[in-house]
Design a protein around this nucleic acid. Sequence first.
DNA 1: TCCCTTGGTGATAATTTTATCACCATCCAT
DNA 2: ATGGATGGTGATAAAATTATCACCAAGGGA
Lengths: 117, 117
Amino acid sequence: MYQRKIPIDYDCGLSVAMEVVGSKWKFCILDEISKGIKRPKDLVNFISGITKRVLQKQLKELELHGLLEKTIYTEVPLRVEYNLTTSGKSLLPLISAVDQWGMGFSSQLKTILETEA
Amino acid sequence: MYQRKIPIDYDCGLSVAMEVVGSKWKFCILDEISKGIKRPKDLVNFISGITKRVLQKQLKELELHGLLEKTIYTEVPLRVEYNLTTSGKSLLPLISAVDQWGMGFSSQLKTILETEA
DNA sequence: TCCCTTGGTGATAATTTTATCACCATCCAT
DNA sequence: ATGGATGGTGATAAAATTATCACCAAGGGA
């Protein structure tokens, strides 16, 4: 997930995917949005550890890459919602699979890291 | 994929998965190994852009995390092979899915990044 | 006017990951 | 002993990401 100086290889699916979703929070953000948490204010509360500033940047990138679309409701107070686009939705099965794999691997990783320490 | 000071959340599958495979080269490495490229020397040649040093570090981490196992053949010249463990193999469908998603998204990303530039 | 809520941004530091370079070890052939 | 092939590591620089802090804007209510 670090490739600005080293350009993206558009012929490598892994390279493309890493560019778009290979960062610490993006899977979490998309996951929460898919569950109905769509407002920045709520996302900050639901995603433990993320800060407002970082969330904003990630949302902006996801929007730029076409995975999220932003809707502004001119209510008061101002309401903004981020929704998954078709591309964004197409990622959900993958996110779910990664999450499940991680859950299944969790105990093994814990054992390994505690043993060496 | 940055979480040493910020500890891993073992209850979050995404967090666990990111810790283990969330880095620039790991999917590529596992992918090549699954295709039969198992020696460090060959991996360096097949994975365009990676350097020997970086590959070694990634292999070591993958081995530590239990996704690869290392076999040393005392031949001459020395031969070392890295093979997927059961856990490593369990990742293959995921890697394949990510790769395919990336391939499908490639043209969209290219269009977006070229348009804004 | 002052404050609150929500959404957003710029500048900068702190962290982490990647890259580069030099170097070592083994085994064998010349 | 010299050199080539393979595998490996330490130190350090470079690059990228993430975190922190301060600040701004719009709209409405007290």
